[in-house]
Structure formats: C-alpha cells, structure tokens
Amino acid sequence: MNGFPDREQLLWRIQALSFTAVDLNLYLDTHPWDTRALADYNQISAALAQTRALYEQLYGPMLNFGMSCGGDSWRWVEEPWPWQISTRRA
C-alpha cells in the first residue's frame, strides 16, 4: 500500500466534495442569510481545495485559465479527458 489512494478513488472524493459545494451554493443563492450553510460551504471548499491539490500533484492541473498551478510540464493537454475515463471498462 503506497499511501496514495488510487486515481479513481481520489477523483470520486473530489467529485463528492465539489458536488456538496454546488448543492450548498444553490441553496445559499436562495437562502443567503443561512450562516450555518455558509460555514458548511467554507469547510467543504477548504477540504476540496486540499484534495484537488493532491490530485493535481499526481495527475496535473484540473482547472484552466490560471486557476490551477501549471507545474513543471504542461500536463493540461494529457489524456484521459473526462469522457474517456467513462469508457474504460474493467
């Protein structure tokens, strides 16, 4: 066991945190006074940023246009792109 979760597991973790942030975001848009939801959102955002940083270290940037660090080589162009992952069957 090398201490890093596998790529699919790490990606799922990011998808779960990111999705939680989206659902909280939509809720906050119609309930902007809800401080508890806001605290939740901030906590999830922080965890998401951490998990993305780990994934990006291993697999390259997840965001374009300056939102992710570029690294030592331009891995943004690497495959797989998201719909290509979907067609990899065991």
Partner: peptide, 12 residues
Amino acid sequence: IYDKKLQFPVRV
C-alpha cells in the same frame, strides 16, 4: 473556466 472532471462519474 473548465473543471477537468465529470460532475458525476459515467460508465456504460
């Protein structure tokens, strides 16, 4: 901006 992941994983 573009986030290089699907919002939900897809398999067929």
